[in-house]
């Protein structure tokens, strides 16, 4: 699914070098100041040199990513109709206001906006640590195995590579409300449940299914990235620690964790982005039921745009979402990098 793939695509970035922008700044400091004309000519020459490699990708990016997003900004400030040739009057911040007026009032636009937003935040709080911890633990276990490493890696990775639609259908199936569904059956056999639950029809069970789904599908990816990072830690450090009499737990906290900090940061950013962009799970499993309490932002925006035709409002919500995620990522980057330096 594209939308999620967008999120997944960003999930694979920058593993080794988490601080590109500042390094770039340093690189741009000129040794001595050239005149404007000289600098311009130099810049032009540099651009000409890079253009053969850059042009195709950059053009496609501008056309298919940047232009639509700039247009989104325009849509967000207008009362937009998709009919060709229609007038799209400029409405200022009207669309943005709607997400804030009547937050407490049951049934208003803002009310459901904030429920969806809350669910995204909860998803971040649950699925990000869930995937990180599970992924890291499994990675460490696999790393310490003598044989069978690859088999386990493949098994845990299958869920990651499977189609979202397929996996969503499986989850829909095993969480059906009757006695015969896999989850109800097992939990009843284990006497955890007395009677079958309609998982996808209740607020919190529905949310939990969405979260468990995300963790189940995502932790394999975390595991793969971590196993790779673990291979990069030198064995000498562990041997030295063993001689000093450190326990396995101590080694984990004092050697392993600090060594994979860069990877952790990279995973963190991407998992947060992923959790904020949850869509397919909701779109195919709960549709936000009951009463919009399992809704998430992406589904909210989708419904507003494509069921209600409120493109302006949907675009405004999307824009606010993007700014929020971007700011969070930047803050996190500052914060974590600060820790790294000291």
């Amino acid at each position: 699914m594209t939308m999620y793939d967008g999120a997944q695509a960003c999930v694979k970035n920058q593993a080794t070098e988490p601080c590109a922008p500042s390094s770039g700044k340093g690189g741009r400091l000129p040794v001595k100041k050239d005149s404007l004309a000289v600098r311009f000519r130099k810049g032009l020459r540099q651009w000409l040199a890079v253009l053969p490699f850059l042009s195709v990708g950059l053009v496609l990016f501008v056309v298919f990513v940047l232009y639509p997003q700039l247009k989104n900004i325009y849509i967000a400030f207008s009362e937009y109709s998709i009919m060709p040739g229609s007038e799209n009057p400029f409405v200022g911040f009207e669309n943005f206001k709607r997400a804030f007026i009547g937050i407490k009032e049951h049934g208003s636009d803002a009310y459901y906006f904030w429920i969806a937003f809350r669910n995204n935040l909860l998803a971040v709080l649950v699925t990000v640590p869930g995937q990180m911890v599970l992924g890291l633990l499994v990675a460490v276990m696999i790393h310490n195995l003598k044989f069978g490493k690859n088999i386990y890696k493949i098994i845990f990775y299958i869920a990651v590579i499977c189609d979202w639609v397929v996996v969503a259908n499986i989850f829909d199936y095993i969480f059906q409300p009757d006695n015969g569904s896999l989850v109800n059956f097992v939990l009843m056999k284990l006497h955890i449940l007395k009677e079958p639950l309609a998982w996808l029809k209740e607020t919190w069970t529905g949310n939990w299914v969405i979260w468990i789904f995300s963790i189940w599908k995502g932790f394999g990816w975390v595991m793969i990235i971590y196993t790779a990072a673990l291979q990069g830690i030198s064995k000498d450090m562990y041997e030295a620690a063993t001689i000093d009499g450190a326990s396995s737990v101590e080694k984990f906290f004092y050697i392993t964790l600090p060594s994979v900090r860069g990877t952790t940061f990279y995973l963190l950013i991407n998992l947060i982005n992923g959790a904020m962009n949850i869509f397919i799970q909701v779109f195919l499993l709960t549709k936000g039921d009951p009463v919009g309490t399992t809704d998430v932002m992406m589904n909210y925006i989708y419904t507003r745009a494509f069921s209600y035709f409120e493109f302006g409002y949907a675009a405004a919500c999307g824009l606010m979402m993007g700014i929020f995620v971007f700011t969070t990522a930047m803050c996190l980057k500052r914060f974590l990098r600060y820790g790294q330096d000291t």
Binding site: M3, Y67, P68, N273, N277, I301, G318, M321
Partner: peptide, 17 residues
Amino acid sequence: VFLLTMMVPAQLALISQ
């Protein structure tokens, strides 16, 4: 700019694309 575009939900982009 690449970074920023990665964070904004891309659902409505479909129409412009």
